[in-house]
Structure formats: C-alpha cells, structure tokens
Design a protein around this nucleic acid. Structure first.
Lengths: 142, 142
DNA sequence: TTAAATGCAAACGCTTTGCAATTGA
DNA sequence: TCAATTGCAAAGCGTTTGCATTTAA
C-alpha cells in the first residue's frame, strides 16, 4: 500500500504539498532534513511553507511511514520507513557515514529483551565513533 | 586527578563559576541539563549567566571531564565522565529510564570493531523502546 | 458544504556570539 | 599586568503555534 493510500485510508486529505513531501522522501537514498524537503517543495510550489513540511512529517511519523534519525547535527533527518531499517556508524573525525545492516543489532536487541524485558526500538540508530580510515591515520589502537 | 587540577594543568583559570558548575555536576547522580546547572549556580551566585554554564560545559567536554547524552528531550544532559560509562533504556511509553551497565554493549562494540574496523564511542548511549511494565500493560509481545 | 489543511507571521526553547567590563594567575 | 573569563543582550537555529484563508472530499 502506497503512502498516498495509507493517508487516505486514515482519513487524511491528499494535498499537493503532502504529495511533494512524500515524493522528496522517496526521491533520495539518503536521509533528508526538513529544510531539504522544503527546498524541493518550494521549487515546485513557491508559496509552500516549511511549517507544512513539519506538519506533514509529523503525520507521516504517526502513521509509521517515515522514521526519524538524529545524526547529532542539531537537526533530525527523515527516511521512508518501507525502505527498511538500517543503522549508521557516524565517524566523528571525518563525518563519514557507514551503513550497518539491521541484523548487526539483533544480538543486542535479543539480549535487552531477554535480560531486561525491554523491547528496544532500533530503527535507524546512529552510533558515533571513529572509522577505520581515521583510526589508521591517527594511530589510534583503541 | 580532580576536575580542578585538570583545568589548571591545561592552563584554564579556576573561577567560582566553573567550580560551581563542576560541583553541580558532581552533586547529582542523575544526568543534569544546562538549565538545571544554571539554577544551582544562580542560587549561589545571582549574577551568573547561563552562557557561562554553556561555555564551561563546552570546556569540560573538550577535556573529557563530562559526557553528553541525548535522551530525545530536545535538550542534552551532562554527566561527570569519571563516574564511569553506563547506558540507558528510555521507555517511550512511560518515560522510565533503566540504567544498563557498560558491559552489556561490549559484544556490540567488539563486533563493530571486528567487522567494520569502527571504534564505537559508546559512552552514555540512550536506547528508545518499551519497558517490560508497559509491554505487559499493552499486551505487546514483540 | 465544511472540517481539514495551508500560509503566514510570530513565538518558542535551547544554544551561541560579540563586546565591553572584570578578574585570576 | 593582561589575556582569559564573564555578564549581558542580542541573535541564531530548528521547530511549533495561532489564526485567518483556502481546499479536498
């Protein structure tokens, strides 16, 4: 079921603005910020407003159509949920972001459930650290 | 070596404001926000300013004397680094925060280093999800 | 027809900054 | 003494909100 159908099924209107926000989210492989979505929206609909972007993202989150990830940039980034969950290794030294398949965190998720009864929501986690390249350069053996 | 000594060793001045910020950080077992530190500082030094708190925290971070954790509240919380690293399970349903000993994440840290050459900085990680109590209440079996 | 959604402008909350005055070493 | 530090006020930034207007259904 498409985002459009899900919106309508839940009694929400299919406006041009919403369709353009959804399109922007689908048109990128990266995680995209509200500002970036707004720029795309604005280029095709000059009167559109960034508050509409935020309101639409809020709605899409509530419908579990998008996920939010905080890469520690002081703003949050969005990603279409249906594209699957994955995680990110964010290098604090060079900024490089390495994708991490979801399964890499299964052992952790299982352990938290087993030992703490805690159902961890590990969609789109960002883990800080230092990538292999930077470690080599800095002679960091940690 | 105390925070005071480390500051001085690195050529920074030991002002009353800095000492009070450090004291506020040490006086709490919880993670404390800049605002909360400021309130304590202000009660003893009415002319103190919150920008001094932020500048001091910035400095203490740089010297690895405090760590920063984002609990997803729209602000960041601080903790004395020497008190050791631990992690947090944050329940999205009731807000309960369960501490998690550092060792629980060792297998993950090792796996990331082995498989990706990535040295993860897992000091004070906050993991979202649902606690055992809320899972029971909601009949969530996940 | 009408409740939902939008655009606009203003406010919000946390954080940062420029600058003159103060102060620790 | 004098560069480091502070207080103050203002701005910066991402995000949210109140309200009149517009619009999808």
């Amino acid at each position: 079921m498409s985002c459009h159908e899900i919106l309508q099924k839940n009694g929400h209107r299919l406006t041009l603005q919403r369709m353009l926000v959804i399109e922007a989210l689908h048109n990128t492989e990266r995680h995209i910020s509200a500002e970036e979505i707004y720029k795309q929206l604005h280029s095709r609909h000059p009167y559109a407003n960034i508050s509409t972007v935020y309101r639409t993202l809020e709605l899409l989150k509530k419908l579990n159509l998008v996920t939010e990830t905080d890469f520690g940039e002081g703003r949050v980034r969005y990603h279409v949920a249906e594209k699957g969950h994955h995680h990110h290794l964010v290098c604090q030294s060079c900024g490089k972001i390495t994708d991490l398949e979801e399964s890499a965190l299964h052992p952790l998720k299982d352990a938290l459930l087993r030992e703490y009864g805690f159902d961890a929501d590990l969609r789109h986690l960002a883990i800080s650290g230092m990538c292999s390249g930077c470690r080599r350069k800095k002679g960091n053996k940690a």
